[in-house]
């Protein structure tokens, strides 16, 4: 029992993971709306909890922004299989899929203490994912202008790749990244495909038209893939390290951002 009330550090759910400069917790597999509520709880209690990184995997779910066409996805199945539920989230158009075998990281971080630069924060998340991948033997890369982490064919120059390369599968997406900022605190974060069935992604990609190929750590490495829990421990470490580069309190409040 803590002396301080409300969701302070010791009231955070889940198993603590080692991470410098923030509190990382492994939550195992939880439903999407529960995780959303949890994020909201922690965001509001941020003054007490400090920066938090939640690591987890979701039950299968499609999430769609306000422009998304959930009705296509939520239609009753013809073959008797359970439909994948659809959650609308208050964000821009993208529809995406989360499910078992995908490591989801929700970063509840005070952006105000980090120079308020949202793009920089996205880049730091990418760095954290890339270094995590590197420890798993996968060479992840940034693809300029396309937030997320990608894996390209060996010897490819990612900077020169275009839609066609994507369509031909020469560059594949391994992690999606996206955040929302409420009250100065970030929410959401990254979703890293570790070892999962990619089929559900196909339902949200309009045919050969978009052509984003998804991939997983398991597909990109010949060897065995550690458990999601182990990858979470790794990611806690790496993401925390990446975020530490802009962490308080050294910043000059007046702003001169590097």
């Amino acid at each position: 029992m803590s002396v301080a009330r409300a969701p302070g550090a010791d009231e955070l759910p889940g198993t603590p993971l080692d991470a410098e400069g923030l509190r990382a917790r492994w939550l195992g597999r939880i439903g999407y709306s529960l995780a959303t509520a949890l994020q909201e709880d922690i965001r509001r209690a941020h003054a007490r909890t400090g920066d938090v990184l939640l690591l987890l995997e979701h039950e299968p779910v499609y999430t769609t922004g306000r422009g998304g066409r959930a009705e296509h996805l939520a239609a009753p199945p013809s073959d008797g299989a359970a439909p994948v539920p659809v959650e609308r989230i208050g964000r821009g158009g993208d529809v995406t899929y989360h499910g078992p075998g995908q490591l989801v990281g929700y970063a509840l971080v005070d952006l105000r203490a980090r120079g308020r630069d949202v793009h920089r924060f996205l880049r730091e998340l990418e760095t954290g994912v890339i270094t995590t991948l590197s420890a798993l033997g996968v060479r992840g890369a940034r693809w300029p202008g396309r937030t997320g982490v990608w894996v390209a064919d060996p010897d490819a120059d990612v900077g020169r790749m275009d839609d066609r390369d994507m369509q031909l599968g020469r560059i594949r997406k391994i992690a999606s990244i996206g955040i929302g900022v409420r009250g100065g605190i970030t929410m959401h974060g990254f979703a890293l495909n570790v070892a999962m069935d990619l089929a559900p992604f196909a339902a949200i990609v309009p045919c050969g038209l978009v052509g984003v190929r998804m991939t997983t750590v398991a597909r990109e490495t010949p060897g065995p893939v550690p458990s999601l829990r182990e990858v979470a421990a790794l990611a806690a470490h790496q993401v925390a390290a990446a975020l530490a580069s802009s962490a308080p309190p050294e910043r000059d409040p007046a702003g001169a951002v590097p």
Partner: peptide, 11 residues
Amino acid sequence: ATGRFTSADLS
């Protein structure tokens, strides 16, 4: 019609 595809169905 139902939007339920596998990746093989669309690629």
